[in-house]
Design a protein around this nucleic acid. Structure first.
Lengths: 129, 129
DNA sequence: CCGAATCCAACTTGATACTG
DNA sequence: CAGTATCAAGTTGGATTCGG
């Protein structure tokens, strides 16, 4: 997604909305949030690849790797490789990654409070037209 | 996205994460958040289609329509059609839609605080390997 | 065990043209 | 003005295979 909302000639963009897209791009993919959640639960906020994969459940190797690379790139997790046989790689939530959980939980709180109503709205909307 | 995280045989799913996906599916699309932001700014949290389209900027008729339908379905906006010539349709943020802005702003706050660091992390990551 | 590479299906979005 | 219809293009995610 490369929408440059900051140079919109048709009108000013809400400053507080504009920079949110990059974050959404990170959160919105299929696995990032689940991965962060799993790491947050783990002791030491740390899991090796295979454990993490089973903890997340349903994720392919490809997508887990991709997701972790992106999270690492953003400084939300660290990646540590151990020179062993068989190889072992551990991922750990950084402080930034942990602090990210706070706003996420706020959002989740809103969802939990509103999700039943939203579902009702959807049913109503779908059955009417 | 139809991942049923609640029946993961490999382990329990964090209850606070599980129901968040439907919300992400709404937030994560390209325009929903911008549309909500534009309506929140407008007087009476209300705009007609054409005004909204120019306010958002860069959105096609097709996507704006789709986005608004989805938001309406979730009870975040209302749609009012006026029997006039030329036709006029106005969209207004509901109370639910307005309350949604609160957690979103929390998230945005985190991003604003962390975005510079994240960008630095990315640059570092990209230039190394 | 971890993950890179390849191929492919599905979904999302955009451009364009047309209508009440 | 406010859509709808159709088609093209880009992006994402899953399956599979292979390598260190």
């Amino acid at each position: 997604m490369n929408i440059d909302v900051s140079i919109d000639a048709a009108g000013p963009i809400a400053p507080e909305i504009c920079p949110v897209r990059p974050l959404l791009d990170r959160m919105a993919d299929k696995w990032s949030l689940l991965v962060i959640a799993r790491l947050a639960e783990a002791s030491g906020n740390r899991l090796r690849f295979s454990k993490l994969m089973r903890a997340v459940g349903g994720v392919s190797q490809r997508m887990l790797t991709t997701t972790l690379r992106n999270l690492e790139r953003d400084g939300l997790v660290t990646r540590e490789v151990f020179a062993e046989v068989p190889p072992r790689v551990e991922y750990e939530l950084t402080e930034r990654g942990k602090s990210f959980l706070i706003p996420v939980r706020t959002l989740i709180g809103w969802l939990e409070a509103n999700w039943p109503d939203i579902q009702r709205s959807r049913e109503l909307y779908d059955q009417n037209d």
